[in-house]
Design a protein around this nucleic acid. Structure first.
Lengths: 200, 200
DNA sequence: GCGTTTATCTTGACGGCGTCAAGATGTCCA
DNA sequence: TGGACATCTTGACGCCGTCAAGATAAACGC
């Protein structure tokens, strides 16, 4: 059950492929990602991954699924260290959102609609939905009404989500130069001030 | 100078490649895009594009550059049909932003930081910057102060930009289900209400 | 008008890619 | 102990981007 890298059977190839896959993803970008590259890094034949993930989309989907879970975790980590005020909790989620995007930009891109995953498996959709429900919960705490019962509150959710997502995407893409020049604390303060505009 | 498709020399291959390139981009997605596919569609040899665009990145960069110009035009079209109130003009830009993203999602993705373009040429950066300056101008009209002279106003720009961009990205990626189910007028009203939260 | 330079496009080759089929090598359980 | 099964390898296929060499047409100097 433990990993052995010198035998015919790898031992824990699936986990090794996921780990190496994420490295390759961040190093080469989504476009540069290749199954054979990942296989080579793990020291295994070029078509070994097929047995565990079917095809390239399978591995990418697994990476994205795991990504969404850690994405949700990143938001919760920030909330653990924040105040208990509902607005503080939303701001904390936003910062976690940003943390994740900046720490794993290629994975972030992959998760949000890169067309290399044509048919997202159910577990990926569920993991993504869980992250969305988390944000919806943040807004519900502030407004006192479930977004799923009030379209105005749902609009609040979409506004906060869009803002955080757009900020993260633009930052990653390098198109938001004025903010990119800031150091981390300044950037976070800037982001808080922006997100704060929505919950005034 | 006119296009001839039956001779050795194409006549206007560069334009034909751009046009076919965009078709392929939207049909196959950024990931499915290939130079050879584009060449085949135009009816030309597989390495003819190289002479006009250098390599695949060159063609993609040219598409993205043209995309940014039409992106800016889409915002101006909406403004032409909107009221003269500064806030109306910003909302119109936002709707144009959305128009473009929905009409050409793959191109939109390509423009905003897809990693298939590793070294954006100057004209691409300039076209992108022109679009940004347009948004900055919209905010300046509302606040009466240049964003480049006041960080608070710059934050307004970034907020509006992030919101519009995130909304567009999430919509394209299919992750914003509640909004996706709406028809066009409902979606636009929803988007106006969201963007309106920022300029209350 | 003619020859030559230049721009444009084709052909063929190379290695890398994803995927499939067939075979090799371990593991596990009856 | 032996056969079924999971796991991994090998080899092949066509597609890809890129490069070098060659073919063709246009442009230009004279």
């Amino acid at each position: 059950m433990t990993a052995r890298h010198d035998t015919y059977h790898h031992g824990d190839l699936r986990a090794a492929l996921l780990s190496a896959g994420e490295e390759v993803l961040e190093e080469l970008g989504v476009a540069g990602f290749s199954l054979r590259h990942v296989a080579r890094r793990v020291g295994v034949s070029h078509s070994a991954p097929a047995h565990h993930f079917g095809d390239a989309q399978g591995l990418l989907a697994a990476l994205a699924t795991d990504g969404f879970r850690r994405f949700l975790a990143a938001m919760r980590v920030r909330q653990r260290d924040s105040g208990d005020d509902p607005k503080d909790l939303l701001l904390a989620s936003g910062l976690g959102y940003l943390d994740f995007a900046l720490a794993a930009p290629a994975l972030f891109r992959l998760m949000f609609g890169d067309d290399r995953i044509k048919h997202p498996p159910p577990e990926l959709l569920e993991a993504a939905d869980a992250a969305f429900r988390h944000l919806a919960g943040d807004i519900e705490r502030i407004r006192g009404v479930s977004p799923f019962e009030d379209l105005e509150v749902m609009a609040d959710v979409m506004a906060a989500w869009s803002l955080a997502h757009g900020f993260a995407e633009l930052l990653i893409s390098g198109r938001m130069k004025p903010v990119q020049a800031m150091d981390r604390p300044a950037r976070e303060a800037f982001f808080r001030s922006i997100l704060g505009r929505l919950i005034a």
